[in-house]
């Protein structure tokens, strides 16, 4: 069953083509990662799917509705959570906001209580209930927002940059929660992010958006194996020159005591390279650069160069 269907959707804001001929289908229970650099059009695309923005041209159906926001029955099954736009009421305590949510989504009070307890356990939000959102840190607020969004057990979840400002331990918990959800197949989820690594764990499928166009749509593993740029290692040698000829490296350069190596993780592991190096030489210093999204985009475009930012 296709929950979200877009065909040839375009949107222009003040002469800027924010979305160009976007076509995509999302099936029930699919977890899709929508990635792209800042300004690629991710949030606009999410807004189009949510019905908050109407496209200039093109066909759009979410839950079979052209404009889901005009149909409250369907809207009740969708949650749209954004890292930059709060759903909580600023003037109310978090608890009061959650009660408002119960009323708006017509959640049975017993179901509400049970569900709240469960979500509180996952996101550790009990301590924030009597506070107003303004008194919470970005990460704390985000956790409360997640509780709010998940209370009504939405079938479609649109998550826009929800891991921003969340500290590592909680980030891990959130990722775990959605990984579990992915296994249990409870919801259809679209995440936006500009971190490939974040999305990789959570999604069956990755859509890469660049300058308003979809330039990749497929499995995350395929994107990484086909288009992820090389890892780069920079080493300062303290003693002895290594022999790198036998290793399946993409490229290496030796500049007196400095060595720069580009390699593909599919072909060789970082530890293998290090082991090999340490056989003949002593390593003074080492730096690793992970491939970034920019590199991936360039590679998809055929460019071989990438920046080590």
């Amino acid at each position: 069953m296709l929950l979200i269907v877009l065909k040839d959707v375009s949107k222009t804001f003040r002469d800027k083509n924010v979305l160009k001929n976007i076509s995509l289908h999302v099936a029930k229970n699919e977890h899709v990662g929508l990635i792209g650099l800042n300004g690629a059009g991710k949030t606009t695309l999410l807004n189009v799917i949510a019905g908050v923005i109407k496209p200039d041209v093109g066909f759009i159906r979410t839950y079979g509705k052209e404009s889901i926001i005009e149909d409250h029955q369907s809207l009740r099954k969708m949650a749209y959570l954004s890292g930059t736009r709060s759903q909580l009421w600023e003037e109310l305590t978090v608890k009061a906001s959650l009660q408002n949510c119960m009323n708006m989504y017509q959640i049975n009070p017993q179901v509400f209580a049970r569900r709240l307890e469960q979500l509180q356990g996952i996101f550790e939000t009990e301590a924030f209930m009597e506070l107003k959102p303004g008194n919470l840190s970005l990460g704390e607020r985000m956790r409360c927002e997640l509780v709010y969004a998940l209370l009504a057990e939405p079938e479609i979840l649109l998550l826009d940059e929800v891991l921003i400002g969340v500290d590592v331990s909680i980030k891990h918990k959130i990722i775990q929660f959605f990984e579990a959800d992915r296994k249990e197949k409870q919801a259809t989820i679209i995440y936006t992010s500009n971190h490939l690594a974040e999305v990789e764990k959570l999604c069956d499928r990755v859509i890469l958006l660049h300058a308003g166009e979809i330039i990749f749509d497929g499995k995350a593993e395929r994107m990484i194996s086909e288009f992820s740029p090389y890892y780069r290692m920079e080493i300062r040698i303290a003693e002895g020159l290594p022999d790198l000829e036998d290793l399946p490296l993409e490229k290496y350069r030796i500049d007196s005591d400095r060595i720069t190596i580009d390699y593909d993780k599919q072909k060789i592991e970082t530890t293998q390279i290090l082991k090999h190096l340490m056989k003949k030489s002593k390593i003074g210093d080492i730096r690793l650069y992970e491939p970034d999204l920019e590199g991936t985009i360039k590679k998809i475009y055929g460019g071989r160069e990438w920046k080590t930012s």
Binding site: N47, G51, V52, I69, Q73, L75, R76, M78, Y80, Q87
Partner: peptide, 10 residues
């Protein structure tokens, strides 16, 4: 702050 009202089922 208006957009969030749009996605609420009310």
């Amino acid at each position: 702050r208006f957009d969030r009202l749009l996605v609420r089922p009310r």
